[in-house]
Design a protein around this nucleic acid. Structure first.
Length: 269
DNA sequence: AGTCACCTGATT
DNA sequence: AATCAGGTGACT
């Protein structure tokens, strides 16, 4: 479920709920979810205080006292939040952390594709180097986007979703940004006209900023994934519906095994 | 650059 | 029963 905006909402929620909280104990209900595997490793956070929580791309990073870090990736169905009592945990809870005040932080993930890794600072730095710029950060300029796309023959949509090139754009917002910029998703990235790159840059930021706002607003209920995608989404998941700009039917295609939605009239090749 | 694997649940 | 799912990494 989560792309950058939803992950960002999770992080802000955790900040409010659990930053500076002390972990009493850790329970792993599904061994494959944590790495390095086993209770011994993940157990190192027991007795430590969560000093800060932040986001890089779609990763959630937590620093605990004594220089221990957790790197969480929600993949498709993960979610992370605090509940008042451990007994309230849902069926899909894979890992949970009892806090010293009696509350509990839950990593829920029905499909169990996500991961919770115990890492050191070097691994956080390495991760940072492997990932492209944050699309909502100052460093993500029109010029930077132009450099990212320049000379690339691959279709522009999968390129936008490549986390090494730009960090945090997923399947929904890639489709949405291309619709706003009127660019065909299959167009070779390097062939997108300079003027359109500028529009695309603005569209990416606009779409993500809007989603960051609504994701947070709708994330107030722990345990519930946001319905943010149903609000302000123009093409994603709307095959057969009419394009709000020109009335033409929205089409679906598959790129790299993922659904892409677009308007063939607005987004001409 | 494309395909599959990882998993489970919802929907057709 | 079959297909689909908002992500990523490991293959070819």
């Amino acid at each position: 479920m989560p792309e950058l905006p939803e992950v960002d909402a999770v992080v802000r929620r955790l900040r409010e709920a659990a930053e500076k909280a002390r972990v009493e104990s850790v329970v792993v209900e599904r061994a494959g979810t944590v790495a390095p595997q086993g209770m011994e490793e993940i157990g190192v956070v027991a007795g430590r205080r969560m000093e800060r929580v932040w986001r890089r791309a779609k990763y959630i990073l937590m620093e605990f006292s004594g220089g221990v870090y957790l790197r969480v990736h929600l993949r498709m169905t993960g979610n992370l939040y605090v509940l008042p009592d451990w007994r309230l945990r849902p069926v899909g809870a894979r890992v949970w952390w009892r806090l010293s005040d009696g509350r509990v932080m839950i990593y829920e993930d029905p499909r169990a594709l996500g991961r919770v890794h115990v890492v050191g600072w070097e691994e956080i730095e390495a991760l940072d180097r492997e990932l492209g710029p944050e699309p909502l950060g100052e460093e993500f300029t029109v010029g930077v986007l132009r450099e990212i796309l320049r000379g690339v023959k691959a279709p522009v949509k999968p390129v936008l979703m490549d986390q090494r090139r730009v960090a945090g754009i997923g399947n929904i917002y890639a489709s949405e940004a291309l619709w706003w910029a009127r660019i065909h998703p299959g167009r070779p990235a390097g062939e997108v006209a300079a003027g359109k790159v500028k529009v695309l840059h603005g569209a990416i930021r606009k779409v993500l900023e809007h989603a960051v706002g609504s994701a947070y607003a709708e994330y107030t209920q722990p345990g519930k994934m946001a319905e943010s995608e149903s609000f302000g989404v123009e093409v994603y998941g709307r095959e057969g519906e009419r394009c709000s700009r020109c009335g033409t039917g929205v089409e679906r295609m598959v790129q790299g095994g993922r659904s892409t939605f677009y308007c063939r009239r607005c987004q001409a090749w």
